[in-house]
Design a protein around this nucleic acid. Structure first.
Lengths: 203, 203
DNA sequence: TTGATAAGTTAGTGGCGCTAACATATGTTA
DNA sequence: TAACATATGTTAGCGCCACTAACTTATCAA
């Protein structure tokens, strides 16, 4: 399928369109990209997408899902590169946080789409599930750190605390809001520091 | 001006439109509201706004500015209600953080507009300045807490650390992302806890 | 070979942001 | 008070967009 050309049928339009949209989202933002332009990039008419997606929203959900998959991969990779999870070591958790911010830095448009609510792509079941699996990477690591189960509410509460910080860091960085602080900001260093302080013993 | 009616000239269209847009932004998001609908609400033709604003973006900047003013007021009020700023007390700083989250909760559309970047309203000088003044509320409180000047970089760095957390909390809450954690979350309580832990001694 | 279906096309609709040309109200000055 | 300049409305229309209807062509299975 990938090598088909010059046929009346495109061959793999759904995934080509998803990729084109992802590119446009990084350029224009999820709110302002146009399907029409993605069609030009893919070399098809503006009506073609509607054979694969019911509406614009569906394409965005497809993009969000692929974003969550990429983010999960990058978090796992960063975690594994950070050494073992031993008592008192916060490096693996901090590495997950820095991967989270790193993903946002590289894919700001996708990041806003994945976590924003206009459009709200999270009500789609598969997007929701993919996002949930992404969050569970952090949950598992915090559970191991605390010596508790992933289901324990103390595990969840601490994970949410950590998530909140890195989400703020990612958001403020990609939206250029740190500029208001009039000082040089080392976001990764902040994540290290905040992880250490927020983990500080059990609640 | 406020009581004029039935005249050919509207009287106060700019501020009526700004208010209509702010209402629509809360309903549809800053990306999806339409000027046309705001015109219907104000009872004027779709061309009328362009006598007061060069383009859609200008109306959004007007909305963002009024949002920052409201947020600043609410932060000041919450801070003053939290008692004196004495050594070891973090209540005033936490109160500012909770007011930040509270503003976002009550005005999610305006909040996203103020801190988001699509559309980017912060390049407008007066918006930028109003936002800067808002941030300085926190800076001053942290400076007093540390016994340092607002200009000291340690003051700024710690302020940014605190801001990052509350911004994450506000964003995740209004975008319904905490749902992924599958547990009850007390955001205000989290802000208290995080403020205490992040303040913990000097960097 | 054929016939159902998948996946393209063109043409068109209604809504949008925005502009041009025009109309009317307001306020200043002779 | 008359008349002009300017501010602030109007209608009409452009080009772009999401999306649909009706049609055409390719693919695959019987």
């Amino acid at each position: 399928m990938a090598t088909m050309k010059k046929t009346y049928h495109h061959g793999d339009l759904a995934s080509v369109l998803t990729q084109a949209v992802r590119t446009l989202i990084e350029r224009d933002g999820a709110a302002h990209f146009s399907i029409a332009e993605a069609c030009k990039m893919a070399g098809v008419s503006t009506a073609a997408p509607y054979k694969h997606f019911k509406e614009k929203q569906d394409i965005l959900e497809s993009v969000a899902k692929s974003g969550f998959q990429d983010m999960t991969e990058e978090m796992i990779e960063a975690r594994d590169a950070a050494g073992p999870n031993e008592a008192g070591r916060a490096e693996r958790i901090a590495a997950i946080g820095k991967a989270y911010v790193g993903f946002a830095r590289k894919n700001p448009g996708a990041f806003r789409l994945m976590f924003g609510s206009s459009p709200n792509v999270k009500e789609n079941d598969t997007v929701h599930e993919t996002g949930h699996r992404c969050f569970s990477i952090l949950i598992e690591e915090v559970a191991a750190h605390l010596g508790m189960t992933p289901d324990d509410d103390r595990t969840k509460q601490l994970s949410v605390l950590l998530w909140t910080f890195v989400h703020g860091a990612a958001s403020l960085e990609i939206d250029n809001d740190y500029e208001a602080a009039d000082t040089v900001i080392d976001v990764d260093g902040m994540v290290d520091l905040a992880t250490y302080r927020l983990l500080n013993t059990v609640n």
